[in-house]
Nucleic acid binder design. Sequence first.
DNA 1: CCGGCTATTCAACAGTCGTTGAATTCATTA
DNA 2: TAATGAATTCAACGACTGTTGAATAGCCGG
Lengths: 234, 234
Amino acid sequence: MVVARRKLTDNKKTTRARPAKGRILDAAERLFAQHGFYGVSVRDITDAAGVDVALVSYHFGGKRELFTAVFQRRAELLNAERLEMLEGVRRAALPGVPTLEAIVNAFSYPLLERSARGGPGWKSYFALVAQVNNSPEWGPVLMTQHFDPLVERFIAVMREALPTCPAQEIYWGYQFLTGALTLTFAETGRIDKLSGGLCKSSDLDSVHERLAPFVAAGFRALCASREAAKPGGP
Amino acid sequence: MVVARRKLTDNKKTTRARPAKGRILDAAERLFAQHGFYGVSVRDITDAAGVDVALVSYHFGGKRELFTAVFQRRAELLNAERLEMLEGVRRAALPGVPTLEAIVNAFSYPLLERSARGGPGWKSYFALVAQVNNSPEWGPVLMTQHFDPLVERFIAVMREALPTCPAQEIYWGYQFLTGALTLTFAETGRIDKLSGGLCKSSDLDSVHERLAPFVAAGFRALCASREAAKPGGP
DNA sequence: CCGGCTATTCAACAGTCGTTGAATTCATTA
DNA sequence: TAATGAATTCAACGACTGTTGAATAGCCGG
């Protein structure tokens, strides 16, 4: 990415609102989400943050470490919230099991809610996750490292709710769910053009209303067709 | 991307199997799919192709044009095949309408089949599409330009098959479908680890068996819930 | 053998890349 | 106030970036 580099001979010692480390993280989050890891230079980031180039190496060790720091920053908070909601719907359904819709919502709602009303930083973060999730270079490392513990718990609850369903079906259903969810976070505006303005990528409330019914029905269909395929069916 | 650059003082004038232009396209396809546009240098590509650096500018005009050429190359063939299959299932169902499963299959099967058994070039191509589709920088331009005409036809047939369903539901359903499909193409291997080897990202036949039932059920659920929400329902 | 054309090679350009070491500033404590 | 250690600035390094113009090789019809 090449842009006119802002002159900053001014505002050098003026009272800076926030410390440099956070400013760098914010700028990196936004730019990495737009152009990817290699599409952004360290100078792009530090210029946008209004700090010196050397501070990236000083605070984070290097560009690569900055990238993972950006990815980590919001992951724990997010997963804690999702886990809490997941266990909440599980407890609320005892001694039975929660509906598939409730489980999917526990998985997706905290993300959609933050992306919709958490501010531009969160919006950028999820766009970054969307790119990472679909990247063979970064996906296996970063997604597995930061999200798999929660995903395993999610799948375990899903299996409780579908006790007769083969495990593979749950995993494939999860893959379809996360694919649909991450493309939503990318907010490329493609659906806006396709629908002639009828739908808007940024309308995450509409997604929230529709994702759980869509995915839950998909799970049921998956399990039903596989159970029917088993020998000795009903 | 930084790798040791191969010395090629040899094999300069030896009989070269295929012309340079195609070799460049193949190498670019593979490397762009792995690391993205900015993650690969022109020299990475030409070294992998065994040709001179200057040939990229000579044959394509520049790196950017090479990228779009890679993206274009297989798009028309693909869309022609999908359109033919789509119209085929439509005709076969006359005077009625095709099942949702058949429509989804016409949309996804040609892609899955090529990715599974079309050779490494096709596999790379779909991994590239997965990244582009989730990129705010490239997605709106490339996906819209090369795939939207087919998508519009696909959605039109979908609406014929669901005549009472509001248009928005079809568009959202399409977004979920394409998200699930493109993440599948990324083949990041994440589901392999999650499932402990039970599922394999590369097993596109399993995806083919499951995607249509999953998505068709999702569409039906979407339309049903929206019709029920209409005033004066049954 | 010639001229013309395309394809390829080579060398080099100006600019950008990530990183670093030394110098400087800042806030806090002794 | 002096000292300390962290935070920031500055200048620069060697390597790599995409692109280009001139030179060369190969081929085909005359």
